Amino acid sequence: MVESEFALCGACWAKLPLISGPVCQSCGVPVLSRDPEDDTKCDDCQKLARPWSQGRSAMLYRDMGRTLVLRLKHADRHDVAVTAATWLAQAARPLLQEDTVIVPVPLHWQRLVQRRYNQSALLAQHLALRVSRRAVLDGLVRMRRTKPLDGANVTERFERLSGVIIPNSQRTKYLTGKPVLLVDDVMTSGATLAAATEGCLAAGARRVDVLTLARVAKDD
């Protein structure tokens, strides 16, 4: 039994690795800092130039966080997106502006047909409802299907995704001159988010911030 619809039970809640305290300003992973407002960056974000402005993540990709992401992504558990919207809204608070437009990272159409839904679009949709912002769920297009990134190193990931994501010409008007909040399920190297950011900037976005449900940390 749970307290309300879409809530977690006590046992699952105890295993949920929500992120709090000082975080990397580029990806949201926890960092060692005395001041949560410091412009601190994690080791990965110090080594790699990020094309987006700021980033946040709701939780770490481990324990119940990993379980929920995999259920959302591969097990048709759309209800996870409803629950996650609350955590995403909390993480997104420093990034939101009055005219922010929320855009999900797109799937290639072949993968979308196979899976039948884009988990990032579900997250973006429910987040937009939670924070009362416009969601442009088809703002970006994935031009070609890339090989799975599992096992690829950082260089390979960025090479495979270079130029893959472009603006949807029929939706550019909603992104031009606006701050865009890109939403994805998991950030590992940041290659997918970088490609999607370039797509948003090509559409004329004023700035791009990124938000993920989970962040893979080095010790995970």
Rank of each mutant, 00 (worst) to 15 (best):
C12S: 11
C12P: 13
A14V: 04
K15V: 00
P22W: 04
V31T: 03
V31F: 06
S33D: 08
D35K: 04
D39A: 13
D43M: 07
C45Q: 04
K47L: 13
L48T: 12
P51H: 07
P51M: 04
S53M: 03
Q54S: 06
G55I: 00
M64L: 09
G65A: 11
T67F: 11
R71C: 06
L72E: 13
H74R: 14
H74L: 14
A85N: 02
A85Y: 01
A89C: 05
L95H: 02
L96V: 12
L96W: 03
Q97H: 12
D99S: 14
I102A: 04
V103T: 06
P106G: 09
P106E: 07
Q110S: 13
R116P: 00
R116G: 00
N118H: 14
S120I: 08
L122C: 13
L123F: 11
A124G: 02
L127A: 12
L127C: 12
R130M: 10
V131F: 01
D138E: 14
R142E: 00
K147C: 03
K147W: 05
P148S: 07
D150M: 05
D150N: 04
V154R: 15
T155A: 15
F158L: 09
F158N: 11
E159A: 15
R160F: 02
R160A: 15
R160Q: 15
G163L: 08
V164F: 00
V164G: 02
P167H: 05
R171L: 00
L175P: 03
T176H: 11
G177P: 08
K178N: 10
P179R: 01
V183D: 10
D184F: 13
S189P: 03
G190R: 13
T192N: 09
C200Q: 10
A203T: 05
A203S: 09
G204C: 08
A205T: 04
D209F: 01
D209L: 00
L211R: 06
L211C: 06
V216S: 07
